[in-house]
Amino acid sequence: MAEIPILRIGDCLLVSIQVDMHDRLALALQDDLTQRIVADRARGVMIDISALEIVDSFIGRMLNNIAAMSKVLDAVTVVVGMRPAVAITLVELGLGLTGVRTALNVDKGLALIRRIIDNPERDDADRER
């Protein structure tokens, strides 16, 4: 079975999902990522979904889980590059992805992770505003 590669950039892990995800692959990615966060002592996780043509509730759940697990391990997760059609469909589906931070692209995602790691207190205030 194909595996989704996890790249390391400084203290961040980068995953770019380029294939149509079937459910086992999603579960495997969830496992691999939690292992790597601990092994690499990563502070940030960025998941690039710009190639994904759909996100259904299963993949949504995987993204939520990764965000929640990395939070427990003191890392922040940012999902980047969601396509407009995918975002509209997710909203209609009723999937809010609460708990997942998002950014438009990889550049902005990295900047957001840096900002949150450097100012953990300000982050909460930011979200309230």
């Binding site: 459910d23 043509e53 759909i54 996100v55 259904d56 509730s57 299963f58 407009p84 059609a85 995918v86 509209i88 469909t89 209609e92 589906l93």
Partner: peptide
Amino acid sequence: RARAVASGFSLVDQTKIVTAASEIAR
């Protein structure tokens, strides 16, 4: 997806029916 494209669905309409199909197929 292929069927929706052939039927002239817009990108958003394609995405909606493919996502619904994915949910029910699972």
